[in-house]
Design a protein around this nucleic acid. Structure first.
Lengths: 108, 108
DNA sequence: ATCGTCTATCGCCGATAGACGATGAACGCT
DNA sequence: AGCGTTCATCGTCTATCGGCGATAGACGAT
């Protein structure tokens, strides 16, 4: 998966790539999860569940989506899980969107 | 709909609002449409259809989603339609995401 | 008046998303 | 060994998405 590389060199990723990352961010629960992950640096699944009032399986699913999108790092820690925001990836997405928006607004 | 106002004043919109706008952007076809709209300033539906190789009804749907999200302005022009990128709204979304990302990455 | 074009909308469909509960594996503790 | 906790995964259900064709309305041209 070298998409971020392409992104770095040419200034914007292809529509497919950008859309996929934005899709991972396009759910209120997942945004809330990101906020919580960044606020408390510990971040096991249970913690997020307590914070969110959703079923544990549901939260686990959302976390998986974020991990699959490359926005959150995951590391099993004993019987716990450890989730952590991937700041670089997140900034990448933001930059991609900014590049897209910029290229769309350059004409004025 | 005063969400953008809130966004302006407090630095970031609520998760729901951000997610909704990102959802509108989280489809490759819609990103492609945005690119096309910004490239050619004229933008009737038919034009987009010719550019995209999708059914007219499908394209119309995607355009509607973008309009409903407030990212594209719409104005009927005779029997044609006129779609135009709303640069301000687009920059708003980008800023919202940047704010979110920033608040998530401030800890390092 | 009629025809052709451009749109938006409707109805339909297959696929996917998002929620849940149940389950079993892994692990710490007693 | 046995119990409680944490977690990922599976199966199920429902709602929504994304695609299409068909249709009707609006309009220009003939």
């Amino acid at each position: 998966m070298n998409a971020p590389l392409i992104e770095k060199t040419c200034g914007f990723a292809d529509s497919q790539t950008v859309a996929a990352k934005l899709a991972a961010l396009s759910h209120p629960t997942r945004i809330e999860i990101l906020r919580h992950l960044s606020a408390s640096r510990s971040c096991c699944c249970r913690e997020v569940v307590d914070h969110l009032d959703l079923a544990q399986s549901t939260v686990s699913q959302h976390l998986k989506i974020l991990v699959d999108a490359g926005l959150v790092r995951y590391e099993p820690d004993r019987q716990r899980s450890r989730y952590e925001v991937d700041s670089d990836a997140l900034e990448d997405v933001s930059a991609s969107l900014a590049a897209l928006v910029n290229s769309c607004c350059s004409g004025r």
